[in-house]
Amino acid sequence: MTLALYVPGPSPVHRTPAGVKLLALLVLGVVVFVVPTLPVAAGVLVGVVLVGLVVARLPGRLLVRQVRVVAVWAVAILVFHALATDLLTGLTTAVRLVALVLAAAVVTATTRVTALVAVVERLCAPLRLVGVRPARIGLAVAMALRFVPLVAERADRIREAQAARGGRVRGPRALVLLVVPLLVSVLQLAHTVGEALDARGADTA
């Protein structure tokens, strides 16, 4: 799992309020879908890369890593369209995907999680009317971001331990052998996390 986490910096992109950046992301998404042409998709891609590298001064490898994650999908889409419709549509769709992924990466890399969470909380504020506490939703989002890499790491440890004793690491049987201990480990972790939340005053929030 590769989440583009916050890379601190003094740029105007960093200083832009999280809500504005999320809104911009939304608008970009709508634009590239409403106007599905290659020039628009390519223009957005170039714009996003410029904003990311030149304005926000993010490290190039951060963007490369994000592209690598979706490269397989982009190529698959390209090939599919080349065969099923035409190359131009495929190219447009693939470029659009990469552009949006990079735009999302630029937003998450220039915005603190707390700021993103605050926006989520504000958006969820109306749910207060039906008895949901927005702060809880915000905490859930932050905790998901925190624990995804941790759980992935535990899965790796379990896989290693099984491989070290000659176990298979692929196939349906291997998956079952991974999921069961992982679940046990995650449930134990969840129990202690619950206690830790209590110990740090979560119930008073």
């Binding site: 999680v113 905790m143 925190r146 972790l189 202690t192 830790a196 110990a199 740090r200 929030a205």
Partner: peptide
């Protein structure tokens, strides 16, 4: 309270945010 396994008590993705968590509460 400090637990044996720090991973279980760090609830925010980044360092400063996690330290601020109890104060927020």
């Amino acid at each position: 309270f400090v637990f044996q396994d720090p991973d279980a008590q760090i609830v925010h993705p980044t360092v400063a945010e996690d330290v601020g968590y109890g104060l927020e509460n």
